[in-house]
Amino acid sequence: MVDLKSGRAGGMGEILDVEGPYEVAPLGTALVELSANRPEIVGLTADMGRFSDIHAFRDAHPDRFFNVGMAEADLLLIAAGLAKTGKIAYCTTYSVFVTRRALDFLVIACAHSKANVKILAGMSGLMNPYGATHQATDDIAVLRMIPDLAIIDPCDATELAQVVKAVADIEGTVYVRSLRGKVPVVFDPEEYSFEFGKAKELRSGSDVGVISTGFMTQRAFVASAAARERGLGAGVLHVPTIKPFDTEAVLRFAAGVDRLVIAENHQMSGGLATLVTEALYDAGLHVPMIKIGIQHRFHECGSQAYMEEKYGLDQGRITRAVIDGV
C-alpha cells in the first residue's frame, strides 16, 4: 500500500509506474507532423498549452495557434467559428473544463453544428493529484449521451499519436481522452494501427476476457501475461473508440470467453462497463462480469499510485480479477 504520508501528491496527469519505454509529448509531435502539409489545421488552448503538450504546434506554426486565455466556453466557440471557415480546430484543455464548464458550447456550437473541432482533453479519469475539481471520472458518462460526438480513449503514446492524426479526417466533433508529458509506449507502432470505431482483440484466450479502454489496456496486458503463467487463457479486447461503440466486436469477443473483466479509468456506471452491459443484454447474452473502475463518489487528492491502489485501478486489482475471478 502506498503510504499517504510518504507519498508525494505529484504526477500531473502522467502514468509513471510502468517500466517504459516512454515517449515525451506524443500529442505535440504528432500534431506538428500532421500539420506540416495540412494548412487547414489550427491549434487552440485555454491557458493549458504547457500542460497539454500543444506547445510544439505553437512553436511550429505560431500564426495558426491561438491561446484564448482561461475561457473554456470561448475556446470551443472560437474553435467552432474557425471550423466554419474551413479549419480543423484542435483544442486542448482539461477534461473537467470541457464536460462541466463548457458543456453547452460543446453540445450546440460543436456537436450539433458538426463542427470540425477536435478536443484533446487532459487528465481524463482518475489521473491527477488535485482532487475532485480536476478529476474527470464522469466524462464518458456525460459525453456519450451527446449525438454527433465521437469519443476516443487511447491507450499509449503510439495510439495517441495515431489518433491525433486520424481525427483530422473524421468529420465533425471528436473528444479524445489525451495523455500528456511522459507517456508510456505500450503498442509497437510497426504493428498497431488505430482504426476509428473498431475494437481490437490484442490477446486471445477463452478462459477469461478483458475488455478495456485507455491506459487500462496496458494493465490488462500485464494481467493476461500473469494469467498465462498460471495456465489460464486471458484474452484482451481493446476498445479505444467509445463512441461509436463497436458492439459487434464486443459481442463476438464476449461470446468466446467464460467470463469477463471490464477495465476503465472512469466511474463504473455510465462508461465502458455500461456500454458492454447494454450490448450484451440487448443481444440476450449473459456472461459473468467483474467491473474494474472508479466508484461513484468525489475523490481526494493524491499521487497516481496512491489513488489507483486505494480505489482499485492498480495492477494488482486487475490481475486478481483476471486470475482469481474476484
Binding site: 466557440l77 472560437i78 466554419k84 453547452d104 458550447f105 453544428s113
Partner: peptide, 22 residues
C-alpha cells in the same frame, strides 16, 4: 450559427474573424 442558446454568437464570430484573417 445555431443560435437558440444565448452567448454562442460572439465567440464563433471571433473564430470566423480569425479564420478569415488567417
Amino acid at each position: 450559427i445555431t443560435g437558440g442558446s444565448l452567448g454562442h454568437g460572439l465567440g464563433q464570430a471571433v473564430g470566423m474573424a480569425l479564420g478569415y484573417r488567417l
